[in-house]
């Protein structure tokens, strides 16, 4: 496992895309957050100004998903996956190492992007309980989206198709929910969708009205991520390289 980690870490930092994507995730998240906050005058940033400042998470999650998909899909696309599996035949170790190095770069990037978003916005002090929870939760949210994308890409293999699947999984539930006339069904869909449920971690006001509580919502996303990784591990183990 130690050698798999070392190899994946070297791989990640020897393609120029990694640094650019991480920079993109930070700038995109903080930039869109600042823009959304600037678009409203202080005191009028909706019912939940913290959540408004964290709007940039939509850009951040897309970029992080691309980074995660490329971590394995890029190898399938070029055929390099066979070289990897010939070097490290223990396949679960390969996937675990990829997940670990992704976490090791996504968490720091998110830990810069999220506070930067909040500082630029009209949010109450970061030390406040709900705001701190929203901030910490948003960092974990980005990590979980990355792991979900890694799992999906391991199953799908093809990078473009994998990105499509991940964005579909994230956005399909809220889009279908919005099209539903029945409010009960809307809430049900928002409760189980990885993005809609996961982003309830950002809510600081009106918690009683949410389809799912903040931590429970993040838990739903965690289940999605765990399920995707498990499916990826099983597919990786069972299929020919």
């Amino acid at each position: 496992m130690r050698y798999a980690l070392r190899a994946e870490w070297t791989k990640l930092w020897t393609v120029p895309g990694t640094a650019w994507l991480l920079l993109g995730a930070v700038v995109g998240t903080a930039g869109l957050g600042a823009l959304a906050a600037a678009a409203c005058s202080p005191g009028e940033c909706g019912a939940d100004p913290t959540r408004t400042s964290l709007t940039g998470i939509h850009i951040g999650q897309s970029v992080v998903a691309i980074l995660a998909v490329l971590a394995i899909g890029g190898e399938y696309a070029t055929g390099m996956m066979r070289v990897t599996l010939a070097a490290i035949p223990r396949r679960p170790a390969v996937l675990a190492a990829k997940a670990a190095v992704l976490a090791a770069v996504v968490v720091p990037a998110a830990a810069v992007a999220v506070p930067a978003s909040l500082l630029s916005g009209d949010t109450p002090s970061l030390s406040g309980g709900p705001v701190l929870r929203a901030a910490l939760g948003s960092v974990l949210y980005l990590l979980l989206v990355a792991l979900l994308a890694l799992g999906v890409a391991t199953v799908v293999r093809h990078p473009a198709a994998a990105i499509g699947c991940v964005l579909g999984l994230l956005y399909l539930f809220p889009i279908v929910a919005a099209a539903m006339a029945d409010p009960d069904w809307q809430r049900r869909l928002e409760k189980v969708g990885p993005m809609s449920a996961g982003q309830s971690i950002q809510a600081t006001t009106g918690l009683d009205g949410l389809p799912v509580g903040p931590w429970a919502g993040l838990g739903v996303l965690a289940l999605w991520a765990a399920g995707a990784l498990l499916a990826g591990a099983l597919a990786l183990q069972a299929r020919d390289a």
Binding site: E8, W9, T14, V15, T78, M80
Partner: peptide, 23 residues
């Protein structure tokens, strides 16, 4: 197996470097 099985944006040395680290 396949000489084309490498990521084109990585340098030759770095391609061998990750392989070396894996061993």
């Amino acid at each position: 197996l396949d000489a084309g099985a490498l990521q084109p944006s990585r340098t030759a040395r770095n391609h061998l470097l990750w392989l070396a680290h894996s061993q």
